[in-house]
Structures are given as C-alpha cells and as structure tokens.
Write a protein that binds this DNA or RNA. Structure first.
Lengths: 349, 349
DNA sequence: CTGAAAGCGCTTACAG
DNA sequence: CTGAAAGCGCTTACAG
C-alpha cells in the first residue's frame, strides 16, 4: 500500500462501506460519535484503500492549514540546521508542517518572505530575527526566538547566563586576564553573551570586535590577534564557535599551543567542535527545549486567538521564557600558562 | 495595509465593486478575460482591501497545493543551509512554497517523513538522499539530488570531476604522493570524489577511511594521522571540509606547518573555509544551478504527469543532468616541501 | 449512534 | 467581455 496523493476520497470509503461521509469523517477523526465496531471497520477499509485525507479540503473547511512558517532572515546562520531540525520535530509532534521562509540575508526581503508564508496560509510562524530586525505587522501568531533583552521575544536561551558559565569556568581554572571576542556589535545575542562574561568579577576583560571596523582600521592580517595576545591575556572567550575556530587556527599557525599557551572557548557547540584538535570548549543551548516552548506557545495562540496581544503588534501574550545554557568542557581550555605577565607586556615593544 | 490571513474574500471584492466573483478571479489571475479598465479597478480594490487569496480554496479547486517538499534524511548535513536556501529560492521563483521533511538522521524515519509531506498535499518533492538510501514508492513527482552514479538520480554535481580538479591542482603544484581521506565508505558522493582524485595518473594515492572501523582498529588518538603522514605524503586530499578541518588542526597541533610541510584540501566550501588559518582550498558546487534544475524538472513533471516514469518507481523520466564543480584555491595548498622522502620513512621507527 | 445538508473560498467550463 | 452555476473534499452543526 502506497501513500497516495490522488487516491480514494472520503466519499469513496463511505460508498464502499455503505455509510455516510459524515460517519467516515467522524470515525477517522476519532471524535467518538461512531460505534467502536463500525469505526474499526471504517479505519480498516481506509487503510486498505490507502486513504489520505485531502489537506486542502480540510483546510478550507476548518480554516486552518496545519502548517506553520519558519523564518530565518539569514538561513546561512550556522545554527540553522539545529534550529530547523528542532522546530520541525516539535511541529511534527504537534501535528504541524513547517514551511521555510528565507530572505537570503537581505533584511528588506524579510517582509516579502513573511508575506509569502501568509499567502500560503500558515497558521502561525516562528521567527528567529538577526541583527536587531523587528517583526512587523504580521497578521498571524508569531513566536520569536531571540534574546531575553529583545522586545517581543517569546523564548530564548539564557545567553547572559551562558557567558557567565564560560567566564566562571575560566576563572575557576585560574585565568584572570581574558580577551573577549565578538563579531557583530549590533547583535543582541552577542552583547548578552559578552555582558554575562563581563559580569564575573574575578576576570579582567577587554573586548575585541573582529568586524568591518576592525578590518578598516588596518588591524587585519595574520598576526594581529597573536600580537594582541602578547598584552598578557591567558584566554580568549569568543561569542561563537566560528570566531573561536578563527582564533584557534590563527594562533596555532603562529606557534601558540592551545590550551598550554592560551585557552580558547566558543559558543553554540557546532558539529565540528569535537573533531578539531584541540576539541573546542563551547556552550550549547537546549534547542529541543527552546523549539518545544516556541511551538507550544504558538499552538496555544493559534487555538485561542485571544492570546495574541492586539496592542503590541500581534506578538504573543505569554510570559517570556528563558532556557539555561550548558557548558561543554573540552580540550581547548586549561589552567593559565605559568609565566610572568610583565615579561609578556615587555615583548610588545 | 497589512497582509492578512483572515481578510476579505473574493466575494467581498466582487460585492464591493459590483461584479461577479468569476470576474474578480479572472482579473486577479490575469488570464485576460476581463477588460483592462475593469481588471485594473479590481486589482486596485483588492490591494486596498488587502486581499490575499485563500490557498486552501485554490488548492481544493485546482487540485494543486503550490507546495513542494524538501527531504533531507540528515538535516544535520553541513550543506543543508546551502541546499535549503537554493531550493527555497528556486521554488519561490517558480511560485512554490517549501515544506521541510526531516528524518532526524534515522533511515527508517525517512519513509515517515515523506509520508507526512504527502499527507500535507505537496505537489512534488526534492530528495537529497544520504548513504545510499533509496526513494521508494512515492506517489508524486520526485527530483533526486545525489550523484551521477546513483540510480534514479535527477541532477547532481559532478563529484568525480571535482575530485579530478583537486588532484590536478595538487599534481600541477608538483605533489606526487597524496593521502586521500574519506569518512564514510557507503557514500556515493564520497566514492565518486575519491574515484575522480585517483583518476589523475601523475599521483600515487592511498586512501584512509576515518570511520568507525578505523577507530575500532585502535588507530584513533591524536598522533596517528601525523604518523601516517611520515610515510612520505606531501598532501592530504579529503572528501569534505570537515575532514580537512580535522586533518588541518590535528597536524598543526603536532607541529606541522600548512601548507609548507603538507598541503590540505577539502570539499564543499563551507562558510568557515576562508576564516581559518590557513584558509582552506576547497571545491564548491553550484547549488543555485543544481536547485534550479531540480525545481525545473520537478515543475515540468507536476504540470505533465506523463513525465513520471511508471515503470521505474515514479522517478522522473528526464535526462540526468550533471553540474560541473569549481576549485576554490586558497592558502592551504602549496608546492610540496623539499625533503628526502626516504629520510621521513626512516623516522617511522 | 448515524445521516442529510450546508458551506468553507476558490476556479473553470459554459452561456450569454 | 461578463455572469450564473457547479463542484473540488472535507467537517460540523443539526436532526433523527
């Protein structure tokens, strides 16, 4: 028996078995208005004939499509696979399909992508904004996954807490001077992570933004991170595994040993963190949990439109939920090197 | 004017303007059965009222949902973002939405994922199989993106040619002894890439599979790749950027300089290839082109079911298309080190 | 417990 | 060029 898109219809089942379509519908939906024996007989026959309900017919009648949209302004986000998988799984559990919406990295196209999803009749959507983009005027329930400090946020990882975790870990190992590395000054996520790191008082930190401005200042080139390190830092804590990978390979290439000479940490626990040498200490978010909450809140809003806050741009009127992050300790961190800090400072000249 | 899912219906527009719904429908679909002035007036009013056609109504009437499925057995595949983005873009251009289907890496769940998409009424699907899984009994048009050597394939990158490209590049630099690194013996993609590499006669190659068997043989551990290199190889050509990253960091960690001591190449041109030090020479596939072809063939089959080959499991009856790959030369490759090969062999003891 | 009927919103022959 | 009517396949009050 093959699943089939143009197979028998409800009426066919009803006719074959000699009952009304209403009864078949009730039997199949299990609403219990049909005697057990008959219901069983109908189900058997439906299976036998390979019946698959028409989603169009159902959607037209019920007014709900059973599909939600997943919007990521930047699908190239390295976390995308994890997010997509978690959302797809949670949505499937809740009986929803997931339509993807991409704006190819261009902020202007986000509205179009969202519009396309609305046209396709999604019942709601999950939006993971990037770079402070805001969700505007969407006339359907929207769950936002960003940071606790983002207005309109629905659920997010505790990025601040994650930063704290990393900083505490380094402090516990004995590090005192830590170089913080960010990539995008506008990112709420990155700023929250950095704020968390800075909140650990044992550490003296300094922040380096490896962004366009840094390049423009002519500080790019192979050696500059290594040079910066000579100022006496014993560890680099980055806001993403990508930045950590960058720092790790650049330092290795310049003869630094990790973690003996310098500890390096990342964020997000991307798939390659454990295959590199040394494997990367990182912080993971519980995507399954976050996705589960987003879908749960979204479904509640879909079923009960009163949950949509009319005054506040249709965002969900649910308490913002924050999910703790977890430190994944690996080989890229170790106690600080035994060395005279002033000696290193001297090398600067 | 906000896009709206529960806004005015066709009948509302018709009533407001004083024409029949048929005329509104014709005007909006631009089939040209309506006078230009009236059509323009209708369009203006529809815009003004924020009319969005009900996809359910249309789907039920036309028998087509305007949605296709994208199935990746392993959504954690690092290429997923690229594939998803390219497919989403091509599908959007063709007027289709994209529903994602994931089987969470478990082969057994692939059929379920496909079944769910069929239930949701997709008009067709794009499947990127992994590890020799086959597409079975799907009663809708399917375009398969795999390798030219996979039965039922629709379109794919020329993985063999990509392997050749890498090998020729290394040969042209002067390399003669190259270690080939694979990760999964079952993968058609990897085997095609390796076959292409081996086809370049100037090179003496040997293949190392860094898979479960290798680990079981007790050859894991930090130094073994480095040890293997002492047999006289001057370059490592891997079947994926992940393996290249692994080799690169492991060798760097053990004091090898890349590319001075050994050249390393990857495959797929993942986002981080250019941020690591040294940046990684890789091979990229033209995803946009591949996705474009897949969608084109799929749409043709959707519109003309005769294109579906009944005898051959519903796969598309279109000529298999192969898209050339491109070498992206970066800093991880250089002429072979000047050294006495026998001397290195001696070091083994 | 079961059935007859209405209707979700569209598009498409068919008339005029 | 425009309209009246049918019908896509379902579900849901409403009767019985």
């Amino acid at each position: 028996m093959t699943t089939s898109r143009s197979g028998p219809k409800l009426a066919k089942i009803a006719e074959t078995i000699g009952v009304s379509t209403a009864t078949v519908s009730n039997a199949l939906s299990g609403k219990g208005r049909v005697s057990d024996e008959l219901a069983a007989r109908i189900r058997r026959k439906a299976d036998e004939l390979g019946y698959v309900a028409s989603s169009a017919g159902r959607a037209l009648r019920t007014g709900r499509s059973g599909v939600i949209g997943l919007v990521l302004p930047d699908i190239a986000n390295p976390l995308f696979p994890q997010i997509a998988q978690a959302i797809e799984h949670a949505a499937t559990q809740a009986g929803y399909g997931v339509l993807i919406g991409d704006s190819r990295g261009e902020i202007g196209m986000q509205t179009e992508a969202i519009g396309r999803l609305v046209e396709r009749g999604v019942d709601g959507m999950v939006v993971v904004p990037r770079r402070g983009t805001r969700v505007i005027d969407i006339d359907c329930p929207v769950a936002v996954i960003d940071t606790p400090s983002t207005p309109g946020n629905t659920v997010s990882a505790d990025h601040f807490g994650g930063g704290e975790l990393v900083a505490r870990h380094l402090a516990a190992l004995g590090h005192r001077r830590v170089l913080l590395v960010g990539a995008n000054r506008e990112s709420n996520v990155q700023n929250d992570r950095l704020a968390g790191m800075r909140s650990v008082s044992e550490l003296r930190t300094e922040t380096l933004w490896l962004d366009e401005r840094w390049y423009e200042a002519g500080q790019g080139g192979t050696l500059s991170l290594a040079e910066k390190m000579r100022e006496g830092f014993t560890a680099i804590a980055t806001v993403s595994d990508m930045q950590a990978l960058r720092a790790l390979t650049e330092l290795q290439r310049n003869g630094w040993r990790i973690p003996e000479d310098v500890s390096v940490t990342g964020f997000d626990d991307l798939p390659w963190t454990s295959i590199i040498t040394p494997s990367l200490t990182s912080v993971r978010m519980d995507m399954a949990r976050i996705a589960g909450i987003a879908i749960e809140v979204l479904c509640a809003a879909i079923l009960d439109p009163a949950k949509i806050d009319q005054t506040d741009r249709k965002t969900l009127r649910a308490p913002i939920q924050t999910v703790a992050m977890t430190l994944v300790e690996r080989n890229s961190t170790a106690p600080p090197p035994i060395r005279d800090e002033t000696a290193f400072k001297g090398e600067l000249a």
